[in-house]
Design a protein around this nucleic acid. Sequence first.
DNA 1: GTGTTACCGTAACGTCTGTTACGCCGCTCT
DNA 2: AGAGCGGCGTAACAGACGTTACGGTAACAC
Lengths: 198, 198
Amino acid sequence: MARTADRPAQGEALSRAVWDVLAHQGLEKLTVRAVAAAAGCTTGLVMHRFPNRRALLLHARELLHEKSRVRVDALEADAATPREALRAVLHRGLATDPETVTDSVVWMGFLAAAVSDGELITMHRRHNRSWRARIERLVAASAPDWTPAQVKPAALGLIAMAEGVAAFAAADPSHYPAADQERMLDTALAAYGLGVSG
Amino acid sequence: MARTADRPAQGEALSRAVWDVLAHQGLEKLTVRAVAAAAGCTTGLVMHRFPNRRALLLHARELLHEKSRVRVDALEADAATPREALRAVLHRGLATDPETVTDSVVWMGFLAAAVSDGELITMHRRHNRSWRARIERLVAASAPDWTPAQVKPAALGLIAMAEGVAAFAAADPSHYPAADQERMLDTALAAYGLGVSG
DNA sequence: GTGTTACCGTAACGTCTGTTACGCCGCTCT
DNA sequence: AGAGCGGCGTAACAGACGTTACGGTAACAC
């Protein structure tokens, strides 16, 4: 890492290093030294930029949340219909390529770390609740005549399905190819009567 | 822990201590000392019973797998129809009470630990594949006229849904009450045409 | 009761952790 | 060009970690 004073860029580079370590070495090896090595610097820079290890993790978690929100916002904005938006957004939650598989592994690492960190679990809940609200809104827009009592279980089923299959694929990619996950998603949308062509 | 030579019982007690620490303190604090404290003994006993920390974790993981398999076998045997069996088995995968919430937290801990442990990930895959095969078998029995191309996406959707909602509920129990999870499951089964009364 | 066995608590080892303190070196300003 | 400043690499710290070695003591045989 070159010698610069661009603090936001350094914070982002270090957060990316956190994600790298979490994805390839796991939570147990997520040490300050490992992060520094992944970022190509020393622990001096890391501890100079963040007051302590926890702050580093919290920043990395928040940044990941923010990036994924921006990406999903764009997917939603680009969709022609609510049903296409629903499918596109849910599809992003699957783990169908190296990037999203990595995302899923990192996601699980943060979730496991949250067990012993009140602030991490608070961030997770905030993010997850807004994710759930987004899908409920898209389901309601996709089926305008449904009551909330119909929307809520369907939306919950869809987000749970995406989360679950992403965890499966992250742990066993060769047995959960992209095509299987996509067929699963389209079958579920069709079963609920939310298919794009329905 | 009393002074005895009942090795299997000690191994099980220590594994239960591993689950306790994993559930209440998280993977980062899963140390030999913490496990010994949770078991009410010292590190001496732990290291006398297991050659090293990894062996302790692997044993705890395998025992958890075995116990859940026995429980699910019983649920399946007790069911009157394939559809009832399918629902009962999937319901066990939800996180609807303190015990199953704990199970889900522990499950995630092991999954996160598996990122940096080839043997743990192998065990996870073996277990997960047999779990998937079980649900595919139950779905096929519940809908005898379906082709494999219909069975597989539905079964995948169902197990992913259960896994996902268990993770949600483990991280945010107050926002994922049992009733919501059960309504989600029954709505999904009905949507697939696999409802108990269908 | 006494001797033997081995279970397991105690204590120590070297390594690795997060964190702190120090100082070099490149940039900027006059 | 030289002085001043601050970013960040280096090195050391205390504590916690996994693991090892040793010794006291409970449990059994007789």
